[in-house]
């Protein structure tokens, strides 16, 4: 029980100290879990991150689940996950209640209109960053374009887009790998 609470506490700290999640939490994980506690190695953390990006869900949460599970099994996974999530739930709920009070205020509206413009610019930056690693060749470009068109013009739901992309991706990758293997054989 004690170690479960320690896991919760550690990841609570990680959750409260990281702005933005994802890779922003790496230095914090390294200090708390690798250097101070020796729970995991940095290589393991990088492995968890890699897999966390490829599995559904929030990367920071997935990493917490991995580490907690590795230390203390299923309960460890649950406690670590609860730890990393709890600060967000508390902070956002409080903040949202306050923001609700000022909604409709003219100055607040102007501020949020300006903020919305900033968010658009930030989302563009995030997309560009993703494109660097995500769009590498004709196949991945085609998938990105196809997903855009399907959602924009056909109003396809995100779930359908993900499933169809996965099916096409697996088949296309197999075919491509086969042809390149044949070329190498020649």
């Amino acid at each position: 029980m004690k170690e479960l609470l320690i896991l919760f506490g550690l990841f609570f700290k990680v959750g409260i100290m990281t702005f933005g999640g994802g890779y922003a939490m790496l230095p914090m994980l390294e200090r708390e879990l690798v250097n101070k506690r020796g729970y995991v190695t940095m290589e393991e953390i990088m492995d968890y991150f890699a897999v966390g990006q490829c599995t559904p869900g929030i990367i920071a949460v997935n990493t917490a689940t991995f580490i907690g599970f590795k230390r203390k099994g299923i309960l460890g996974g649950i406690f670590a996950t609860l730890g990393v999530v709890t600060p967000s739930v508390i902070i956002i709920t409080l903040l949202a209640s306050v923001l609700k009070l000022i909604a409709g205020n003219e100055i607040a509206n102007s501020a949020f209109a300006g903020i919305s413009v900033a968010v658009c610019a930030l989302v563009i930056q995030a997309i560009l960053k993703l494109m660097k690693t995500g769009v590498k060749d004709a196949l991945t470009f085609g998938i990105a374009l196809g997903a855009f068109l399907a959602m924009f013009f056909l109003n396809a739901s995100p779930i359908i887009v993900i499933i169809v992309s996965a099916v096409i991706g697996v088949i296309a990758k197999r075919l491509l790998d086969k042809t390149s293997a044949k070329k190498e054989a020649k």
Binding site: Q53, C54, V123, A126, I127, L130, M131, T133, G134, V135, L139, T140, F141, I143, A144, L145, G146, A147, F148, L149, A150, M151, F152, P158, V161, I162, S165, A166, I168, G169, V170, A172, K173, R174
Partner: peptide, 17 residues
């Protein structure tokens, strides 16, 4: 590997929408 190779571009396309 094949699946996730194409899921990230799909996410990019959706984020554009």
């Amino acid at each position: 590997k094949g699946t996730f190779y194409v899921l990230h571009p799909a996410v990019i396309g959706m984020l554009f929408v």
